[in-house]
């Protein structure tokens, strides 16, 4: 059972109250981009065993989207943070480094 703290309403919401929104921090490649970039944007997703960043929505709650950093292997949650950002905040990165030294995920580490 996954329990995430919603950064908007401060509730410790369990999985059935949330809706998964796939991978976080995707950069959109739209009109004007190359076919390869567009292909990667549409189809290429991370599938790590370990540190992962995801989007979640507090669907049966405040209805807001937020980001979560967690470990896919142990279900450990490193933290949740606002959706209004293009990269994980430093305190989330620090929390992950404390538990998983040397981690990397896409361009973040």
């Amino acid at each position: 059972m996954l329990i995430l703290n919603c950064p908007y309403c401060g509730v410790d919401a369990e999985e059935t109250e949330l809706a998964a929104g796939g991978e976080a921090h995707l950069k959109r490649f739209g009109p004007g981009s190359s076919d390869d970039e567009f292909h990667d944007y549409l189809f290429m997703r991370e599938n790590p065993k370990g540190v992962h960043f995801e989007r979640w929505r507090h669907a049966n709650g405040c209805g807001k989207w937020f980001h979560a950093a967690r470990c896919t292997q142990t279900l450990e949650v490193f933290g949740t943070y606002s959706a209004q950002t293009t990269e994980p905040p430093q305190e989330i990165k620090d929390a992950i480094t404390a538990k998983r030294p040397g981690w990397s995920w896409r361009e973040f580490s």
């Binding site: 059935t16 109250e17 049966n60």
Partner: peptide
């Protein structure tokens, strides 16, 4: 608290 009651909001 906004949540769900079994299957409904």
């Amino acid at each position: 608290r906004r949540s769900r009651l079994a299957q409904v909001a």
